[in-house]
């Protein structure tokens, strides 16, 4: 069984009352949990903020139970999922159907699908919207720095120098980080978009 040593170390530091560890824990997870909750709470930003905050509060109470058998963010997402359900139940809302995607298609196929002509079928339109959403989901699934550098470079258009400045590292280190981030992105995105295709195929058959 895999053990997430970096996450385990972070939890150990948190339990020892280490302030920088807390800052890292909060910085790396709050915004990601906010987005995780946002899509499950009908894009209600206040609800998402509240649920993300409750999730982290619950998590710090349960730090000792984290066994590093899954990534810390995965563990937090499990808590967040429960808190989202509780929040919806408390508000008397029905839980919305959440589309979960897993598995692997080619990145190029995804790109092709994004370049479809304007006249597209509802299925294609849905696939296109979902693939774009999956980019954001994928960025959140990556180690925090990977997601950030990819977003800064390719979505927001920052230069290598600017990113190096943000991270306080050299340009070469930034290039290397970007290369690793791209590989990781490709793997995760393939998995997710392939899952989406499988889901669409099943829908088409039913």
């Amino acid at each position: 069984m895999a053990v997430y040593l970096d996450d385990k170390k972070l939890i150990k530091q948190l339990l020892a009352g280490d302030e920088p560890a807390f800052e890292r824990f909060f910085e790396e997870n709050f915004a990601r949990l906010y987005r995780f909750a946002l899509v499950r709470l009908s894009d209600d930003p206040d609800a998402a903020r509240e649920v993300a905050q409750i999730t982290l509060t619950r998590a710090v109470r349960k730090l000792r139970t984290y066994r590093a058998e899954s990534a810390l963010f995965t563990w937090l997402c499990a808590i967040c999922r429960n808190e989202t359900s509780d929040w919806l139940a408390k508000q008397g809302r029905y839980r919305e159907h959440i589309v979960l995607v897993e598995d692997y298609p080619e990145v190029q196929a995804a790109v092709d699908s994004l370049q479809l002509p304007e006249q597209m079928s509802p299925e294609h339109h849905y696939r296109r919207v979902e693939l774009l959403r999956l980019i954001q989901v994928t960025l959140d699934k990556l180690p925090p720095r990977y997601g950030d550098v990819l977003e800064w470079k390719y979505i927001e258009g920052h230069s290598i120098k600017e990113i190096s400045g943000k991270l306080d590292i050299g340009d070469e280190a930034t290039q290397s980080l970007l290369a690793r981030a791209k590989r990781a992105f490709s793997d995760v995105y393939s998995t997710l978009s392939n899952g989406l295709d499988q889901q669409l195929n099943e829908l088409a058959k039913s």
Binding site: F22, F26, F30, A31, Y34, R35, L38, P45, D46, A48, R49, A52, Q53, L56, T57, V60, V107, Q108, A110, V111, L114, L132, I135, Q136, L139, D140, G147, L150, E151, Y154, I155, E156, K182, F185, S186, Y189
Partner: peptide, 29 residues
């Protein structure tokens, strides 16, 4: 190249506003 094209199609990820983040940070802390 494909990957960069793909990423360039996306929007920046939504982020919680500063006030919400500040309040949450202190609550969790």
């Amino acid at each position: 190249e494909s990957l960069e094209q793909l990423l360039s199609k996306a929007s920046p990820r939504p982020v919680p506003d500063d006030v919400a983040t500040a309040v949450a940070r202190e609550a969790v802390r």
